[in-house]
Amino acid sequence: MAATLDILSWILIVIGAGLSIVGAVGLLRFPDFFTRLHAAGIADTLGAWALMVGILLQAESWLVAVKLILIVVFLFFTSPTATHALARAALASRLNPWTKNATGPKP
C-alpha cells in the first residue's frame, strides 16, 4: 500500500514538475503576451495540481490533507480567473495578438 502510494506520488510529482518547467520555458520563449499566457496557464493549473496531489498522497494527518485539498481547490478557481482577467485587461488595452504576418507588436 505504502509502496503504491509512493510510486503514485513520484509519477504525479514528476508530471507536475515537468509541466511547470515546460510552462515556464514557454513563458520565456513564446513570442507575445497571449501565447505566453497560454503557456503559463498550463504551469499554473495542471502542473500545480499534479504537484499538490502528489504531495497530498504523502500527508500523514487528516488536518494537513484537508489544508492541501483546500489549496488545490483554491488554485482550481483562482488561476483560471486570474488568467482570464489578465487576457481581458490586455485586450481592453488594445494589445494586439501576434500573428505570422507580424502586424502585431514585435516579439
Partner: peptide, 29 residues
C-alpha cells in the same frame, strides 16, 4: 528543484517582460 527552476524562469520573464502584462503574469506565476 522543479519549482525552483520554474520560479527562476518566471523571474527572467519578469525582468525581460516587454509589456506590463507580461510582468503581471510572471508575478502571478
Amino acid at each position: 528543484i522543479g519549482i525552483l527552476v520554474t520560479m527562476s524562469l518566471a523571474l527572467m520573464r519578469a525582468l525581460l517582460g516587454p509589456t506590463t502584462f507580461d510582468r503581471i503574469l510572471a508575478l502571478n506565476m
